[in-house]
Design a protein around this nucleic acid. Sequence first.
RNA 1: GCGAGAGUGGCGGAAUUGGUAGACGCGCUAGAUUUAGGAUCUAGUAUCUUCACCGAUGUGGGGGUUCGAGUCCCCCCUCUCGUACCA
Length: 862
Amino acid sequence: MSTYEPLAIEKKWQTYWLEKKTFKTETDKEKPKYYILDMFPYPSGSGLHVGHPEGYTATDILARYKRMKGFNVLHPIGWDAFGLPAEQYAVKTGTHPRETTENNIKRFREQLQMLGFSYDWDREVNTTDPDYYKWTQWIFLKLFEKGLAYEDEAPVNWCPELGTVLANEEVIDGKSEVGGYPVIRKPMRQWMLKITEYAEELLEGLDDLEWPESTKEMQRNWIGKSIGAEIDFQIKDYDEKIRVFTTRPDTIFGATYMVLAPEHHLVKEITSKDYKDKVEEYIKEAGLKSDLERQELSKEKSGVFTGAYAINPANGKEIPIWIADYVLAHYGTGAIMAVPGQDERDWEFAEAFDLPIIRTVQPPDDFEGKAYIEDGPAINSDFLNGLHIPEAKNKITEWLEENGVGKKSVNYKLRDWLFSRQRYWGEPFPIIHVDGKPKAVPEEELPVTLPDVDRFQPTKTGEPPLANATDWVETTDPETGKKALRETNTMPQWAGSCWYYLRYISPEFDGGPVDPEEEKYWMPVDLYVGGSEHSVLHLLYARFWHKVLYDCGIVSTKEPFQKLVHQGMILGEMEYTAFRKNGKVISAEKASELEEVERVRVDESEVEKKGERFVLKGTETTIEARAHKMSKSRGNVVNPDDVVKQYGADSLRLYEMFMGPLEQVKPWSTKGVEGVNRFLNRVWRLFTGNEYEDTLLITEAEPTRDQLKVLHEAIKKVTEDIEAMRFNTGISALMIFSNEANQWDGVPRAIAEPFLKILSPYAPHIAEELWNRIGHTKSLAYEPWPAYDEEYLKSDSVIFPVQINGKVREQLNVPANKASDKDFVIGLAKQQAKVQKYLEGTTTIKEIFVPGKIVNLVVKPS
RNA sequence: GCGAGAGUGGCGGAAUUGGUAGACGCGCUAGAUUUAGGAUCUAGUAUCUUCACCGAUGUGGGGGUUCGAGUCCCCCCUCUCGUACCA
């Protein structure tokens, strides 16, 4: 067999690795550790797509590299296997989600193994395994004991079609993320987690993490800390106060009215008779509106007057109290003091309802806008006049505190986490209800397993599917023997993924979620790679649980993931699209203005570039040229199975890394896969000769100095690029090596072996096979990583560009030992005929010399 | 609107500290090999001018700093992602 046949050798080595347990991780505390984690996949029915192997190949390269560097590497994988699709499939077909899930996992596992990832398969975790979710439930009990889990009646996003409540993040434009069904608001009993208690810690913890700045920023925005003051406004003729939160207490003299959220608890009480009907109608309308409608209708401010007045504590003036849905019930105190002079929303509202506007900050003379939100001296503000915002804030806050009508206050946008779902396929809560009160199931009774049911639909009233399993629901309190009812909500998908990185550390441990000894060795995760779609939720929730576990003494680090990298999305192939309207081809610019245009796919060969635009060949008709997100409906999905079948896993791995920087969004190109496949073919022939011979081309000759230089340059570049996760340029270095080596008459063993080692993290199968063929009997997975020697990188001469006035005019070939000799190099430069031509009739003003780099002669006409 | 990131050949991209812009790969052109195709090998391939050399231009646009700018500073444009009345 002399031709490169990836399928045969890949299968062979995958079996070898699995059978020999090549990548089994033992805790060897003598060695430095490296914990490298992939975001585990949801095993969907459609199998792996080409996006998965991108991040997984990157981490696999690092894992293989670190092993060869002498690290003890933990590189596990598992399954985030609870989730809605399997349940929806069960509702449709009656197939138990467990069955669907098992099948999907089997497929995913085979696909991942087919790509040659070096996971320790003995540490596989599965969130739906009772031995796993036992500990998910156990952690929930910790939260419950600490008062961080509580029940609440909350208006939630109820989706009648899915028969379930959705979290805000699962609702997109007022429709369900899954399926696109309408969502309405409905009050329901829910479990909530007090993530807000950890808001400050979650914010502070971000500072020391090596995460993308954009991700940290998104988390900061999500937590949304703002510093300001709470101020109490006395209601006229009532023994009640309205508390507001404001970041601009300095503008209080400009507060000309107040606004309560329609849901505010005082609205009903303070509304006067004359306004009762209107207010009630407004509340009813606001309550029925879905989030989408609220947004759509929000372009115009709406609201009604309650008939009540409040007293501005700063100046004793009476100001009207309105209700309006631009004030959100769940942010701050659900009430604001409206200062139209300094707030754009309040200004709009004031204009719409003809309310007074008082400026309290002096805008610059040329200011033409409405509300002025920038800094300036205070006006119309009594004792604050003349002060700028920061000083005015301090002064008024002190005044408020002295007079007992307000205080400094910190507010967070972050809300408590709605932690229950009305679904079957999730972790049951370890909670029973005794006399109507929730009570923890004793630890020794965990796990509370999912009962088998016949039907997976919720009840008609929206009770979760588990409510149908009456035998399971009705139980007794083991402590008192009283009748008890099990909680029928289940946990959201986030629960299992909040702590899975801990279970990998000691997957068999039965004394807790993680073995404390092992945890101290392995944590934190050194590198976590996954999609940026998890920037906020998964990563914030997992950090929250980790901090709770830290406070419980279960884990030893305050943060779970030290370094985080997001792989960029892989788009479909580049597409060229022409537009047609009524049968006539029109330009892309025109098409974007018109409706109902027909899109026509155009082949690349029909296209040319004219200036900035792509046009149909020989015409002026612009067309659209862009790559789109892969989607079934567009029909541009690339299936990794097909790619492997045709080119092999090594080619797929190599191509995914060669496409461009890991973090970047980039379009797929099947031609590109062919390119790296050609490279592997060349490497194969470098060792095995052409297809007609069956001889090894490895020689036992001493390598030449030139060969050593080529090798060591590759080692240096590949090593540095793996460390910095610049895999694309690392591959380029491997290609340069093979291009050079192809010119040689046979490759000396002393060159071939290190090359196979540095190739192996990228293309492990071909590297193992060739390693084996040149006479080794053991896997190269733990061979020491070759070091490069600076000595070999030196060359005898240096090419010096000579610039005259910054333009390159000549190249000098300077002996390496003279490369830092300014006089020599400049002297040599001036001798060149071409240089002399340019120097003719000029005076040299300056001679720039950068040792080993460049010469620049600055001249002017004399 | 706001926040973050990015604009380099026909395409994906490279240039790590300011020092020869376009590495490597794709595509394309020509040639070798081959009955032919494929595969492989060799040479070429930013643009303009030119038979060619030479030369000029060139990293979204405009300005600036510098002997020298893809890289640093200011202004503007476009695209991608995130976000949505957060007081």
